[in-house]
Design a protein around this nucleic acid. Structure first.
Lengths: 288, 288
DNA sequence: ATAGCTGTTACTGTTATAGTAACGGATTGG
DNA sequence: CCAATCCGTTACTATAACAGTAACAGCTAT
């Protein structure tokens, strides 16, 4: 289970399902005194900007976040005044500002897990010459952590935040290690997309695949996310709380590697890597 | 002038001096309806974390930000719930969370100025084999933008946000291009530190240096920030508003280069670079 | 056992924010 | 050329969210 005790719940990353309940404003659960909605809104605005979306308008932000236009204006104005966003004088379009840039730099390089996993992955990369990926769970999404890619692999520009857990090696092994309740929550509002001809879109098939993954101990993605790419994934576990917090995967071009060959040769590499990553995570105290 | 018209003032990055007035709560100026203090606080907390300070305690955050402990708790709790920070269960110490990591990544790589200046600096770097630095103004600080360093230079790990404008090539040229009012504001609460034996600490000397820099058109830092490093700097100007928004600098090891030689050989390189950077800045619409 | 740290919670007055509505400027289309 | 929309910005008010005091609980060291 992701949120076993009330104590852990506070510390844990807030669950998407739990979050959804908030707007309902059910008077039963007292409105968390110690949660700032304003800050949440401000950050959700900042999150709309990135490599893919460098520029946005006020109304765009308002509709995307669901925040009232005036409130959006207040938040945006604050961010502009503080330098996190900047505003084009003529068309009033908004872009990332210098302050967000420096904050970003600090947050990225100051993230201890990133600094910790880098050498681990690099080592495996140079030893075995294979593409390696790693990610952390956030709700029902994966946040890309660190990646090394061989030139033989079709360089696919990974999004930083990954949906489609059902179609990815890292996603599958995460799902396989979730508690039954969390897994059900995931399936509850799952609408699988056919990304390649191999993608599983039938819920029952996906369920079976997850069960197999669980007993197998590692996950297999046989060209289900991208044609020409076969991956195997293993979980990053917090060994104290016995919960998944992320995953690592090895990616191969299907032209050069058969699934059989991969399973024969690289499972031990994968599992060793996963163990090292799990140790790191456990001492760092990342919890689901 | 940094804030010439009320219209620009809103769009501009908020001036440190202007900001200071806020807490005085002078009833004369109506409390900005469209500025969220809560968001400001939340972001100021996030800013306390970085490569240098990966872990902090609640009281530490409270004292550093000057925010009441309970409010700090609320903000921190929010950030933890949203995944921007994470909390060690045992000692309750706080660290950067996965969400801040991904936000950071997006803000860093989504910053168009960074993407734009990279090729410009790279080109000059590969053509002339010299160390190059660039930065943007934020208040009276410089935010490091992009840097390429030659191995012959004592690799000094630059802080991302730079104070000590008076002792740096990029700082001096920025000061030299400020409006008289802004420059006075800068000098008003300046307490120069003697960083090397060459650092100017006498205010009048610094003033004279800034005047010389202004007429010269570029700045010179003769081992005033670091022993063994000579730099020359030129401004990044918004050519429409005729205001400084940042600076570029070329850095040389004093063992291999004399100041004379640098001025003879590299001023044109510097100014060309500055022009290209200014063009970028102007089209991007960065304003002071 | 006690003192002195933490972080956490209860409680309350007030203020900061949400949200409606209206405004002005720019752009579009008839 | 004027109406119709779009956009961002502002005025205004009820109310929910927040600030801040103070007390509490858990931990450590003396």
């Amino acid at each position: 289970m992701v949120c076993p005790s009330p104590d852990q719940m506070m510390t844990a990353i807030r669950h998407p399902v739990t979050r959804k309940k908030r707007p309902v404003n059910t008077m039963a659960g007292k409105q968390d005194q110690y949660f700032s909605k304003t800050l949440e809104k401000g950050l959700s605005i900042l999150n709309l900007f990135g490599r893919e979306n460098p520029s946005r308008s006020l109304t765009e932000i308002s509709t995307l976040t669901g925040i009232n236009k005036t409130s959006t204006y207040r938040m945006v104005n604050t961010l502009v005044q503080l330098g996190y966003l900047r505003k084009n004088i003529t068309d009033k379009s908004l872009r990332i500002g210098p302050k967000a840039f420096s904050l970003g730099h600090e947050c990225f390089h100051g993230f201890d897990i990133y600094q910790g996993i880098k050498p681990i992955i690099d080592k495996t990369f140079f030893e075995h010459h294979i593409s390696i990926d790693s990610a952390l769970i956030d709700g029902y999404k994966l946040i890309s952590l660190y990646r090394r890619e061989m030139p033989n692999l079709v360089s696919f520009h990974l999004p930083l935040i990954m949906d489609e857990l059902y179609a990815r090696a890292m996603g599958k092994i995460v799902l396989a290690n979730l508690g039954p309740d969390d897994l059900e929550h995931y399936f509850a509002d799952l609408a699988p997309q056919k990304l390649t001809s191999h993608t599983l879109v039938d819920i029952d098939e996906i369920r079976k695949d997850i069960r197999n993954t669980r007993t197998r101990g590692y996950s297999i993605n046989n060209k289900e996310y991208m044609t020409g790419v076969i991956s195997i994934g293993a979980p990053m576990m917090n060994l104290q709380t016995k919960s998944v917090v992320g995953a690592v995967s090895l990616d191969f071009p299907s032209k050069e590697y058969s699934l059989d060959a991969i399973e024969k040769q690289y499972i031990s590499v994968l599992l060793t890597l996963a163990t090292e990553a799990s140790d790191l995570i456990t001492t760092a105290g990342i919890r689901q």
